[in-house]
Amino acid sequence: MGSNWNDKRPMSPHLQVWRWHPTMLSSILHRASGIALFLAMIKLSIFIAVLAAGPGTFMKYSSLFYSPIGAFGFFAAVGILVYHLMNGIRHMIWDSGRLLAPKIANGLSIAIIIAAAIIAVLLTYILVSSVGGA
């Protein structure tokens, strides 16, 4: 389709000609986190299926669930989930026409990324310490 287009000037705002800014980063992250969460949903389904298969099957994999890999998996999934959740709520506020001023929109983008990271660290810390104490 665009094969015989000779004009070197950019036709539309492609990623490589844009200066990175926070709302652009959060838009890309929203899409990427959504796709990652779909994969996490597949893993959650398998986890519930392992649970339904009975204690024998669960015990076979429980050393994986209760390992640093399991803790990291929880950290990553919860961090991405909380990010996507907060950014999604912001998208719905944006749909109503509010909070769209560039300064506020950019500030919130950074704030949501930082808040998601802090919440993920806190929840993982609480989880690991409660499991360790049991």
Binding site: L51, P55, G88, I89, S130, V131, A134
Partner: peptide
């Protein structure tokens, strides 16, 4: 957006459920 609102309500409950259940294992 309707499914997003349902998820916004259930996600905190789900995370709480996982965290409350995890110490008890299977």
């Amino acid at each position: 957006r309707v499914s997003a609102i349902i998820l916004a309500i259930t996600v905190p409950l789900l995370i709480w459920g996982i965290m409350a259940s995890a110490p008890g294992g299977f």
